[in-house]
Each structure stands twice: as C-alpha cells, then as structure tokens.
Amino acid sequence: MTTKPLRLRELAKGEDRLTHGHRMCAGCGAPIIVKQVLMATDYPIIAANATGCLEVSTCISNFTAWKIPWMHSAFENAAATISGIEAMYKSLVKQGRIEDKQVKFIAFGGDGGTYDIGFQSLSGAMERGQDMMYICYDNGAYMNTGIQRSSATPFGADTTTCPAGDVIPGKLQNRKDLTRIMAAHGIPYVAQASPSHWMDLMKKVQKAFEIRGPKFMNVISPCNRGWRSRTDDAIKLSRLAVDTCYWPLYEVENGVTRITVKPKEKKPLVDFLKPQGRFKHMFTPENEWMLKQAQEYVDKQWDLLQKEAVFSGGEEKVEDKPEAAPAEEKTEVQ
C-alpha cells in the first residue's frame, strides 16, 4: 500500500474512525492523538486499549466511539491482549481461513498502563517481536482514578498522591524516560510525538506501519484536569513541551536516533510549567530551586539526545513546525 499524502484538505474528506459522542473531558488531548493516529493510514486497524480515561470514555454500555474492531480487557495487559489478537490473525491467515488484508495492530495505553503496571506486558510483547504498534498517550498521571502520581509524572508536579505540601513540595523524582527504555529493547522503531505537530506524528505512524515487528510511540497528551490548565490549551501546551525540549520529537529507527523537529529557539521550561496549576507551588521564592533543577534536567536530557543523534549517525533534520503554514505542496510525503 502506498503511504497516503498528508494534505489536510484530503485528510478531512476521510471518515473519522473515532467518532464524536465519546465522553473524554472537553479539551482533552487523548482523542486528538487517537484521531491523528487513525487518520494517518488507510490500512485496516484493530486496537486494544488499557483501562484508563481513553478506554472508559470511548466505550460505555452500548455506546462505542470506535469504528474499528477494538478491545479492552484490563489495565496492565494491552500489549498482551493485542498479541493474542495478532497471533490469531496470523494463525488464521496462515491456515488460509481468512484473507490477509494487511491489518495493523495497535495497543493504546495511558502512562500508568504503560510506564507502570503494563510495563512488563509491553516489554514482553516487544521482545517477542509481535507485529504491533504500542502507543502511549502520556498525560503524566493516573488521571482516570483522580490524578495520582505515576512514574511518568514530571519532577515537581502536584498530584493527589504526591500533593505539594510544606515538607514535600510535589513529586521529588524525575519522570522515567520510557521512550529511551523502549529504544533499548532494540526494536525496529521507537518514536516520541506530540499532537501539536500532527504531521510529524502522522509521518511516524505511517513509517511505523511500513515496518514489520514491534513499534513503540510515546505521545504527550495534555490533560486540563490533571495539569490544572485551561480547556483550550491542549495543543498550545503540547507545542510548548516540544519548544522547551521537555518533550523532544525524535525517532529511533534500527538504532539510529533522529531528532525530527528541532525548535528554532529553545524556550525556557517555565513557559511550559507556568500555565499549569500542578506546578504553581514551584513559582514561590522558597521553591525556586525546583525550577532550576527541572530546567537542568531538561537541559541534560536534551543534550544527551543531541549527542546520541550525532553518535548514532542520525542526521538532524531541522524542520521547525511544518504545520505552521497551510502550504500543501511541502506537506506531501512519500
């Protein structure tokens, strides 16, 4: 199958494979991500979904927002569940009982369902070489159960299980760098993406679908509830996450790291932190050290990533916000 061109006007004529009528909060980032993922390709897709906001809000009683075959079974096992579905597909195709329609298999999981409780099942599926793509929508906490800390929660954040108090000012640990951990699995394709950079995200999905074997993509997913921000700033914040290098956009393809979008000018981290209530306490004089420490961590990680890109032989493609202009010509990819 040829990769479809990413022209907005052409894309807009397509059918939504996740429908309206879902019950995610107004302004949630997760459905934007799912919609972009499903839109990137015309291949048939079958998805598994870990328990969490996305799952409970898209399939309640006899209302499902999914137009693709979709399965939720539990919280920690989206990767194992999709493995079973994929195995059955392979078996029936091999036996000639169904036709091979080049179905693509996706597992969606939140950060809790991916970084934490579902990590073992994810790691296992990747090691087995299951032909699937795992997509984590990372909103940095267990949102569905009321904003508890996860290992994806960034340093400093105020959550319901690490509330910013007088003695402990929020989460004291840095977030686990899952994207790099997945890259360390040595699987053919790993990427980090953001819904603000839709074209970058969709290109990554397209690329992943042309690769056989396990793929992993980590996508930042603004949650105005948990981040205590405005309902209209999901895209703005995910863009700031990229521009501050808090959430660099890159891919690791067969061991070669490539930064896919390099901000023209790296913005200070506070631009990303300030609009979010979960970091409010860091802006008091006594917690100034936290801002400093958070910035230092981002700088260090960004530095490392750039070195790794050079070291691994990945060319650094400078492609600042390709969607900033509506020009259609340059948006076509092959």
């Binding site: 052409e10 459905p31 819904p195 509506p326």
Partner: peptide
Amino acid sequence: MFCWMYCPDMSIKVTAEG
C-alpha cells in the same frame, strides 16, 4: 483546517470538497 485537525470531538463539519 487546523481547527478540524485539533478538535478533540470531531465537531467541525467538512464539506464534500474537503
């Protein structure tokens, strides 16, 4: 079409011409 791309609720209609 940015509004259409970013709407979390697929609530911007598209005409036949896209």
